[in-house]
Amino acid sequence: MIFFGMIQCRSTKMNIFSQRKNWKQLLDGKRTYLRPPRGHHVLSDVFKCPDTRKAALGRQKRLSRLVEKHSKNFFKEKIKILCQHYAHFRRTRGDGNCFYRAFLFSYLENLGLMQDSQAEVTRLIEHVAMSRENFCRLKWDKAYFLNPEEYFSSVVSEFSHLVNSVANGLSSNELYNRSIQEFVPLRIISLLRLLAETEIRSREDDYKSLLPKEMDALTYCCKELRPLDVEAEVLPMRALTYALGIPLRVETVDDGLNRGIQVKRLDLFPRSVSGKGPLHLVESYWSSITTPEPQEIGSGNLLSSDDTPLLTLMCRPRHCDILYRSEQN
């Protein structure tokens, strides 16, 4: 009996080893944008077998549950403010990629609800094609790529397949099941980071005032965009919004009490929507005494009928989740 248990245990270990070996084989042993140069730090579990990690996305839950579970009163009050506008939220795994994962999944959900989703896919791919032209003009360290253009094309192909699947009727449940699988989303997340970097480096003059002091665009991207365990700040959010032409609303629930119990809202608009340049945003603050405004759901595009972004994320310190308006539930 003991001998059989030892064999079973060894078999389980061999199975896990085989899974991890096959998982690494999916990367083809190549250096890519997913792998930093030799000697650079890598988040220890980025390349773990999918079965050994927490789910990348959770199911929708009542936003009010955050009020019940959190211990800090000021945080509870800020969530109560959001509850005036939103009914549900969806957790994302806090592994450094939560913004990109939340942005992608929220976009795909909204794409699936569009009346003319194929037209939106065409528009999106056109934006990606323009980014590819800028990407090809930039110099890339071979420590990150063996063949930059080949890598870009291969990941864009996967991205295009995913968005077309949604436009052609991929159900919400199927989308969720695909999204919690690791490999394809991880490569696509690397594409989102790459698109943001290409945007910042190609339009450095537009973003110069937003870069940290004594840091150029390339240095910033190497430190803040390429590592898969670095959470996105507002600058990469702006860059990705413009690169893909996708408006975004960010509800910020931070630790600050400088303005009292308030929630900071940022509406990020690409030039094609706002007509005011790539860095246009609308900033506002909401408190418990603010009268909630009706938030109507649009159709056929990424803006609601009141011209506000449909994609909405809740950003807490070093983490992003997806928010769902009350009218959607």
Rank of each mutant, 00 (worst) to 15 (best):
S71M: 07
V67R: 06
D51Q: 11
M6P: 01
P50N: 04
K76G: 13
S71V: 08
R59L: 06
F74K: 09
D28C: 08
C49S: 15
F47P: 00
F99V: 02
Q60E: 10
Y33K: 06
R31A: 07
L27G: 05
D45G: 05
F17P: 01
H85F: 15
G29F: 08
S64R: 12
L82D: 00
L63D: 08
R90H: 06
T52N: 00
H85S: 12
K13M: 12
Q25T: 11
C9V: 14
L82I: 03
A87H: 13
D28E: 10
K21D: 03
W23M: 14
K76R: 15
D45Y: 09
R91Y: 11
F74G: 00
L104F: 03
M14R: 12
T32K: 05
E77C: 14
M6Y: 10
R59W: 09
E68I: 10
H41T: 06
S64N: 07
G94M: 05
K13N: 10
G58R: 04
D95Q: 02
G96F: 01
K72Q: 09
L108E: 02
G96Q: 01
K76V: 06
Q84W: 03
R93V: 09
F99R: 01
G39N: 06
R62P: 07
V67L: 05
S18T: 14
S106A: 15
L43M: 11
V67D: 01
G94V: 03
F47E: 00
A102G: 10
P36F: 00
Q84S: 14
N97E: 09
G39E: 06
I7L: 13
E68L: 12
H85K: 12
H40F: 13
A56P: 00
T92G: 03
R59V: 07
L63Y: 04
S64E: 14
K54R: 11
V46S: 06
N97I: 01
F74Q: 08
K69A: 11
M6A: 15
C9N: 15
K80V: 06
K76F: 03
R62V: 02
R35L: 09
M6E: 13
L108A: 01
H41K: 14
Y86M: 07
A87E: 15
Q8H: 08
D51W: 05
Q60S: 10
F47R: 01
R101D: 02
T52R: 08
R101Q: 08
V42P: 01
Y33E: 04
